[in-house]
Design a protein around this nucleic acid. Sequence first.
RNA 1: GGCCCCAUCGUCUAGUGGCCUAGGACGCCGGGCUUUCAUCCCGGCAACACGGGUUCGACUCCCGUUGGGGUCACCA
Length: 462
Amino acid sequence: MVKEQKIRTRIAPSPTGYPHIGTLYQALFNFAPAKKENGAFIVRIEDTDRTRFVEGAEEVIYSILDWSGLTENESPRKLGAFGPYRQSERLMLYRKYVTELLDKGHAYYSYYPKANAGIKKDYAKKVDTSQEVVTNQKPPISIEEMIESGEWIIRMKVPKNTQITFKDEIRGDITFASEQVTDQVLLKSDGFPTYHLAVVVDDHLMGITHVIRGEEWISSTPKHILLYKYFEWDIPLFYHTPDLRNKDKSKLSKRHGHTNVNWYREEGYVPEAILNYLALLGWSHPNEKEIFDINDFIEHFDLGNIRAVGPMFDLVKLTWMNQQYLQNFSLPELKKRIISFYPKAKELKNLEKLIELSQTRMETLKDFEKLTSHFVKTPEVSVTEKEKLIAKDLVVKLNSIENWDSTVIFTAMKEVMTTHGVKMPILYQLLTGSPKGLPLPQSLELLGKDESIARLDAISTS
RNA sequence: GGCCCCAUCGUCUAGUGGCCUAGGACGCCGGGCUUUCAUCCCGGCAACACGGGUUCGACUCCCGUUGGGGUCACCA
């Protein structure tokens, strides 16, 4: 009998650069089910490709996890009972299992001349690459010798004329003819495993129960299934989530949109909004809610209910969602966010009041700086003769105000507008450099009588 | 090109044989509120890719076509 096992999920990022939005998406869909069942969400670093390794990339992954609140239970920085969590530190393990495969006859040495390295196949043009691998040479005796020669690799043996079927929990059974599966390289000439060997060994050893990963892995899953069978291990549940898409429906990429999580962060998107938006891609809340927090998501998320259709990443809707979050923050919370995003905000007089006025006018935190720029310095505006007269009149009106208050200021402004037959945007332009923005009477009230009049004086006499 | 996956408004989606003259959200258009701009409220436009079946009845099931995507590395 299989004993009741707590759910264990993982993301397996490669430290090859910046944090990808797709990684965050995967993290969310792995984090939630683990949290819901009180299981474990693991981060395993897949650094088996030494040529693509980027120093510091691992820390960058943690930073977005911390920023978004999807904190892992086990990882290289949070050791659990299944370490090490960095594949480069598990080399001896992979060699042990590859030896087992060799002994069982499920893997073999293959001679691979260095001259063939780096050849990329072009399938559309039917390039014949069948001569790349020469296997009829005498194999070295040990893995150590193999590594030393640098021209030997170990491949897995794929049976001929069979069907390999596995169940994708989102799509159902998927079958591949074994002819479609190549004798995958398991151990590279440098002694490092390929993804395919490492992922199977590690998922098994780390007790991963649900493999939740991108759909790009579907076609290599048969290789993994074969390995599970060779090792006689239990096969975990597979959930292949849809890949996020560009506007042209191709897999989300740098060329077409923003894939770096840090871009969103720097543009003033809050993590709650990003997570909420991501949650809605491929999944929907049972009662069609659009705005919900992470706890709501954890409570209602159902892995089996993910759609298999690749959703387009829509920045416009994300932006709307971000605006909703900013608007629903309490004032103290919003203040906190603004200051951490834009530290200079602390130097602003009447900060609380400005935030209050800005709240419904911000789509991103970045907007606060723009909205309040005329408080930081006098805007430079070019004015017509008529506008100079308007400014002059307004100075007279404002000067006579005893009780400097926005409603009184507004009345004065209205009178001037009526006299000159102009509308509000003209005054906004004169005083803030933009025809739209924070309510003008309030702006002047906060700016103070002297400063307001000084600015108008400058305009009328320019 | 082989194989695999997918197919509801422009976009994200609800829909699991009759509740569908297809619902919601973003966006767009129009209106209301209004101190510009927003917010907020109301209304509107807009989709089941196509063709065959199965069934009393298909958006829902099956097959095909078309279209889109992925994959076919000593990258993950």
